[in-house]
């Protein structure tokens, strides 16, 4: 099966909150689980060393283990979420764990690109909006990708920027490799030019 994401127009959920800043991809999925050759099944190791107690049971101190966070598919996280390694296993693990959108006031570049290519919405909002969302876990949000808005329960909304191409790909489930393959003539012309110049 080719890797085309399902079209995604809305994410509608209560929020779960991880206030920590700089949640790196080693915390999202520790390196010892990277020996897989699959994309699937990483959800049970998502936040592995944070989420489980020593006896393997759920650690109640981990915010996403609290009853009100169960079933939430929108994660509000502290600044610079997803920093560190380029492992795409991080968005794979989050998606498999049930997260469909991550909101922060800063998201690391490689993680953000990887997330969007897998249909995991990665949204950057202003510091003030971010602070409000951090302080109000469990808020029911409706993210509208076409509009670029996050609707709040009181009728208010937060606007967010999303690159036009990423938006198009999310909404239509566009396969980016297919798009690149269509550029084959231009790529060949570029290679020809480059070889002539060398």
């Amino acid at each position: 099966m080719s890797q085309t994401t399902r079209p995604l127009a809305y994410v509608h959920s209560r929020t779960a909150v991880l206030r920590d800043e700089n949640i790196d991809t080693d915390r999202i999925i520790p390196a010892r689980f990277l020996t897989t050759t699959e994309r699937t099944g990483l959800g049970r190791h998502c936040f592995q060393d944070w989420r489980y107690a020593a006896d393997g049971s759920d650690d109640p101190a981990f915010p996403l283990n609290q009853p009100q966070a169960r079933g939430c598919s929108i994660l509000v996280a502290g600044r610079n979420f997803g920093c560190g390694s380029s492992r795409e296993h991080a968005p794979w693990a989050l998606l498999d764990y049930g997260i469909q959108a991550v909101i922060s006031n800063e998201i690391a570049d490689i993680f953000r690109g990887n997330a969007l290519k897998n249909g995991l919405l990665a949204i950057v909002v202003s510091d003030a909006e971010h602070r409000w969302l951090l302080d109000n876990p469990g808020t029911e949000l409706r993210i509208d990708i076409a509009e670029g808005t996050i609707r709040l329960p009181d009728g208010g909304s937060i606007r967010f920027d999303l690159d036009a191409f990423s938006r198009h790909c999310l909404l239509n489930g566009v396969d980016q490799l297919g798009f690149l393959l269509q550029q084959a003539d231009d790529i060949a012309a570029f290679e020809h030019q480059q070889e002539k110049a060398a």
Partner: peptide
């Protein structure tokens, strides 16, 4: 620069990446 596995596939197949200038 570092890329994710989806982009590894893009480069293997097309020798190109879709990028906006940082």
């Amino acid at each position: 620069f570092g890329i994710g596995t989806t982009e590894v596939g893009h480069v293997l197949a097309t020798q190109c990446l879709l990028q906006r200038k940082p």
